[in-house]
Amino acid sequence: MLRDWSDVYSIGIAEIDEQHRGFFEAAHRLYEDILDREGRNAVVEAITFMRDYANRHFETEEAFMREHDYPGLKDHLRQHAAFFRRLDELENDLMIFGPSQDLADRALDITQDWLIDHIADEDMLYSLHVKTGDARVTI
């Protein structure tokens, strides 16, 4: 079961919080499709959405971190690259094996992991850096 958006996940940067909320909503749509046994069909849409979302969202985050001289930028960029590698694996499996419920479940797992772990932990760090102006706040 996916978690709902909550202010707990807000990092206090309006544009980025709005993008995160959109990702939560998309994850819930995928989850509902899987429950309705439409996961096989939804997986193509989900992977496409996640890649498009990540491209736009990471661009926003990375520009923000550069603008504020975030000292953990290099590590954060590595995490973004790791997310794309996971998507690449899903897309590769999709091309080789076609859409499946298993693939939809894996896409959902990646989405859930990303939403909770990355936003709550990693994104909060650069937010704290900006709010406190403390260069020591890093990953």
Rank of each mutant, 00 (worst) to 15 (best):
M1N: 03
L2V: 05
R3L: 15
R3P: 10
D4G: 14
W5L: 02
W5T: 02
A14S: 11
E18S: 06
E18A: 13
G22Y: 05
E25C: 04
A26G: 03
H28D: 03
H28N: 03
Y31K: 09
E32Q: 15
D36M: 13
R37V: 01
E38V: 05
E38P: 09
V44W: 09
V44C: 11
E45K: 13
A46D: 00
A46P: 01
I47K: 00
I47A: 01
R51I: 13
R51W: 09
A54S: 03
R56N: 15
E59M: 07
M65P: 01
Y70M: 06
K74N: 12
D75I: 14
D75E: 15
H76V: 04
L77C: 09
A82M: 08
F83N: 02
R85L: 06
L87Y: 07
L87I: 15
D88E: 03
L90C: 08
E91C: 11
N92V: 12
I96F: 08
G98T: 03
Q101V: 15
D102F: 09
A104S: 02
A104F: 00
L108Q: 04
L108Y: 06
I110A: 09
D113C: 09
I116F: 08
I116T: 14
D117L: 12
I119Y: 07
I119M: 04
D121W: 07
E122M: 12
M124W: 06
L125S: 15
S127I: 03
S127F: 01
L128M: 15
G133C: 02
G133L: 01
G133V: 07
R136C: 06
R136K: 14
V137W: 04
V137D: 01
T138G: 10
